[in-house]
C-alpha cells in the first residue's frame, strides 16, 4: 500500500515508487470553504520542498499550496479547472493537485505520518 505523509501546512503526498501525488487535506478544504479556483503548476516545472507550488481559492481567501517535497511536476489534475468543487468533495482522492517525480525521497522523513497529522489537527481546534 502506498504511504501517505502530511505537512504542517495541510498538504498530503502519496508515494508510489518515485512519484508523489500532492493535494490538500480534508481539514484544509473545510477551513477554506467552497473552493472556487485552483491554480496549478505547469507540467515539466521544478518545485522545491516548502516552496509555493499552487494556489487554492475560496470566495474570501486565497492560500498557497506548498510542495511537500522537491521534484519535477509530471502531471496536474486538469479536472480541477472545470470542477474545483472536487477538492471539497474528495480532497484526498479526486481532488488531488499535481504529481511530482521525487528528487530526494529522503525529504519525506521530515513529514508527518497519518497518526501524527491526526494528533496535530486535533491540537489545532
Amino acid at each position: 500500500m502506498a504511504q501517505v505523509r502530511y505537512t504542517q501546512e495541510h498538504e498530503w503526498i502519496r508515494i508510489d515508487a518515485d512519484v508523489g501525488t500532492v493535494g490538500i487535506t480534508d481539514f484544509a478544504q473545510q477551513q477554506l470553504g467552497d473552493i472556487v479556483f485552483v491554480e496549478l503548476p505547469t507540467v515539466g516545472s521544478q518545485v522545491r520542498a516548502g516552496a509555493e507550488a499552487a494556489v487554492v481559492e475560496s470566495v474570501k481567501a486565497a492560500s498557497e499550496v506548498y510542495a511537500p517535497a522537491s521534484g519535477e511536476v509530471v502531471a496536474v489534475n486538469e479536472a480541477l479547472a472545470e470542477e474545483p468543487a472536487k477538492v471539497n468533495a474528495d480532497a484526498t482522492g479526486g481532488g488531488w493537485f499535481f504529481k511530482i517525480r521525487l528528487a530526494d525521497p529522503g525529504e519525506l522523513e521530515a513529514l508527518m505520518e497519518p497518526a501524527a497529522y491526526k494528533d496535530y489537527v486535533a491540537g489545532l481546534s
Binding site: 467552497d34 472556487v36 479556483f37 481559492e57 475560496s58 470566495v59 474545483p84 468543487a85
Partner: peptide, 9 residues
C-alpha cells in the same frame, strides 16, 4: 443572500 461561490466558479 447571493451565491458568491457560483459567481466565482
Amino acid at each position: 443572500r447571493l451565491d458568491e461561490t457560483a459567481a466565482a466558479r
